[in-house]
Computed example of a mutant assay.
Amino acid sequence: MVAGETSGDLLAGLLLDGLKARWPALVSSGIGGPQMARRGFQAWWPSDKLAVRGYVEVLRHYREIIGIREQLKKRLLDRADQRPDVFIGVDAPDFNLDLEAALKAEGIKTVHFVSPSVWAWRADRVEKIRRSVDHVLCIFPFEPALLASHGIAATYVGHPLANVIPVAPDRAAARRQLGLRDEDTVIAILPGSRKSEIQYLATRFFRAAALVKRAQAAIKFVVPAVPALKAWIERLADEAGVRADLQIVEGQSHTVLAACDVTLIASGTATMEAALFKRPMVIAYNMNWLSWQIMRRKKLQPWVGLPNILCQDFVVPELLQEAATPEALAHALLQWVDAKTAAPDKIAAVEQRFTKLHAELQRDTSQLATDAIQKILEG
């Protein structure tokens, strides 16, 4: 298996639960993180080696990433008696699809878990997916039909997190765990799990928090930080002059999302988690200018945030690139905060949309995924 970054590690860990239940003697290895390691996965390289987003950012790490892929490919193919029965690439399509193509050409069964978002951007990737994988495990219900129209076998397995995150999260319990009061107004700040995201987003998120604090001094801010990046995030908070106003915790992103009233959040997988927690949010993103110019030309839909894409509507605001100023972010956050008392029906409408979305994504993911993988192995 290969999983890149924190979100891939989380999804792969949940998938491993199902795989080990189906095949108790399972041996799994490759590239992964702590969630996978807890399930007995052997990580030859840590998943954060692949946690890079954006064209320019990838170029800076290109030689190292390609080197890892070539070493992994050699390790998987060199000894015929040690080749895996199946390779599962978890997200990270820029890394995994080329690797999967090479392994498939050598007769190794290949599965890709989490369909690349060809319906949102980079539709040209469809041909590469067809060449590279025997089967795609999809987390969104409309994807298998789309892939089938291009000759790609796929199964809808539901979103694993929809089974982990409760339909009605316990806000009070989460607040007790974080030392917050029921009556507090709490904003969660999630500037991402990659170094490149922290670099481009954390400071503007923290400056937005300072503006919100100036407007409403009683508001509490909680920041769940990837353990390896926590010290850096604390330094950036110091530099922004808001360290004393932030409760920075190690990990615990689900507890923080359960506890908050609204979240300021980096566009990506975490927005899907926030939607499953039924939380209003302000989605933001900023990246290298050149990477943004390339990516925006490949965009196929007016939305970037996953909750908005799935709802086919701007259910929550998106502030991207030049629009993601501290002033604009603070204004959008305060609108949600004010809606708690001035327009509770606005909050309720978001919760209803996300509750419906949660139901659509709930399936027996472990059973469906392992059934599909077993069929592939039986060939």
Rank of each mutant, 00 (worst) to 15 (best):
E234L: 06
A153I: 04
L246W: 05
M272V: 12
A330L: 09
Y285P: 06
L320H: 07
W119F: 05
P326F: 03
A237D: 10
T263I: 02
E360N: 11
A101Q: 15
P84Q: 13
L77A: 13
E322K: 14
E351S: 10
G18E: 01
K356R: 15
I129F: 09
A123R: 09
K230L: 01
D170G: 08
L329G: 01
A228T: 12
A148N: 13
D261E: 01
K230T: 00
A101T: 14
G8W: 04
W336E: 06
I189M: 12
V27P: 00
D98V: 15
L178R: 06
K340L: 15
I108L: 15
A328T: 11
T355W: 03
G33Y: 06
A202M: 07
A275F: 10
D9K: 07
E143I: 02
R279T: 13
A270F: 08
A202H: 00
P227G: 00
D124G: 12
R214C: 04
D184K: 08
G379R: 10
I219K: 01
Q293G: 00
P326G: 07
A217Q: 14
R53M: 13
Y62P: 01
H112C: 11
W119V: 08
Q367H: 13
A202T: 07
E327R: 15
G268V: 11
G179E: 03
S149P: 08
M281T: 04
V212P: 00
D345C: 00
S291K: 10
M36T: 04
V111F: 09
R125A: 08
Q216A: 12
I248A: 07
E100P: 05
T263M: 05
I88W: 05
P344L: 00
F113L: 14
V58T: 14
K375W: 13
I187S: 03
S29M: 01
V86M: 04
P191Y: 04
T355S: 11
S291H: 07
A51F: 08
D134S: 09
A348Y: 04
V167P: 13
L246E: 06
G268K: 00
D17W: 07
Q293T: 02
L77S: 02
V86P: 05
I88V: 13
L137H: 05
T365Q: 07
I68Y: 11
R207D: 10
L246C: 08
A343T: 04
Y62W: 15
P227R: 09
F206M: 01
K195E: 14
E318K: 01
V226H: 05
R39H: 10
Q216W: 09
Q247I: 12
I347F: 05
W303K: 02
W121G: 10
Q374G: 00
L19K: 09
L72R: 03
P317H: 01
R279M: 07
P227S: 09
M272G: 12
A274L: 02
V262R: 03
T110C: 15
L50W: 01
V337A: 14
I248P: 03
P344V: 00
V2H: 03
L229A: 04
P227Q: 03
F87C: 06
T271E: 06
S28K: 02
R175E: 08
A153D: 13
R297V: 05
Q82F: 12
E70H: 15
Y55E: 10
G241L: 13
R69A: 15
A323Q: 14
A274G: 10
A174C: 07
A259Y: 07
T269E: 09
Q301T: 15
W121F: 14
F142S: 10
E234Y: 00
I108D: 08
Y62R: 15
G179A: 01
S253P: 07
